[in-house]
């Protein structure tokens, strides 16, 4: 009798004996969704280069995945990923990082590379707090919430719609899910990997230790339940007014379109400049 073996343990670095996440953290669910998507597409870990920044979510690929991984400086994973994609255009580049890294500190890298529409998959795990450093208020922390740095509650307006920012910047695939929707998340990651262009997926993830315990939103199970209750699909959300949508999480795939991709455009320009292809392309574009 064969013993049952986990199908995704083969994707994990043999020296890693356990995940680095706190008990009940949503990052593990996201990690498994990524592995499931890669396995579902029949791809190999060698087809990918993973890039992560600093933060809890950055630990998803960094020691965990048995692949080429770059653990970069705070806020700059997209800049590094841009360089990798220009140097190795055949590789799939995936950035996995948190909200504090991609949106707070590296916000402009996110906007500018979405505008350039360079082919990469960016997964932003949004837990609404600086979890790894001890639960300080982040730009994504909801207003009025008590954190380590704001004992009387946060007094700033918070960054509610990261996906909206990336849509406005011009990405070709944008989706938002929570950790209560791992099946839908896997499907979106599959689409994002296959997309020729900048694909951005925001995942709302529970942080039971820094967010839940201190703010009274409960443990991992209660936070998952809360996500299930508050989330609403984009189709249904269109029927509701902004007042009704307050405090709700709109989930779904917001944008999926084809646009000129930067690496392709650069290759075309090089061929044109070196005289391989001329006039015809020029006339067609002019």
């Amino acid at each position: 009798m064969n013993e049952l073996v986990h199908p995704y343990h083969c994707f994990i670095r043999p020296t890693v004996t356990h995940t680095t996440f706190c008990p009940g953290c949503g990052d593990g669910t996201v990690a498994q969704s990524i592995l499931r998507a890669i396995d579902g597409l029949g791809m190999d870990m060698d087809d990918f280069v993973f890039v992560s920044g600093i933060g809890c979510a950055a630990w998803i690929p960094s020691p965990f995945f048995n692949a080429d991984v770059l653990h970069t400086t705070h806020g700059r994973p997209i800049a590094f990923a841009f360089g990798i994609k220009m140097g190795l255009p055949d590789k799939k580049v995936m950035v996995v990082s948190g909200d504090g890294d991609l949106v707070a500190i590296g916000g402009n890298h996110l906007i500018q590379n979405a505008r350039r529409n360079i082919e990469m998959t960016v997964i932003c795990v949004n837990n609404g707090i600086y979890g790894m450093t001890g639960g300080q208020a982040a730009p994504t922390t909801p207003m009025g919430v008590k954190t380590t740095t704001t004992p009387y509650g946060t007094f700033e307006n918070f960054f509610e719609d990261i996906s909206g920012l990336v849509i406005a910047a011009g990405a070709s695939f944008v989706a938002r899910w929570t950790t209560a929707h791992p099946r839908q998340l896997t499907n979106s990651i599959k689409k994002a990997i296959q997309k020729k262009g900048f694909a951005f997926i925001e995942v709302l993830s529970q942080c039971p230790v820094q967010f839940g315990r201190k703010m009274g939103t409960g443990n991992a199970v209660q936070m998952l339940e809360d996500y299930k209750k508050r989330s609403i699909s984009i189709k249904e959300a269109k029927k509701l007014s902004p007042e009704e949508l307050r405090d709700r999480i709109v989930v779904g795939e917001f944008v999926d379109l084809d646009k000129p991709e930067m690496v392709e455009e650069v290759t075309r320009m090089i061929r044109r400049a070196s005289g391989e292809v001329q006039e015809v392309v020029d006339a067609g574009r002019g």
Binding site: H9, T19, D27, Q32, P182
Partner: peptide
């Protein structure tokens, strides 16, 4: 249970 488990 398998899909949700954060620790595989």
């Amino acid at each position: 249970c398998m899909i949700f488990c954060p620790d595989l």
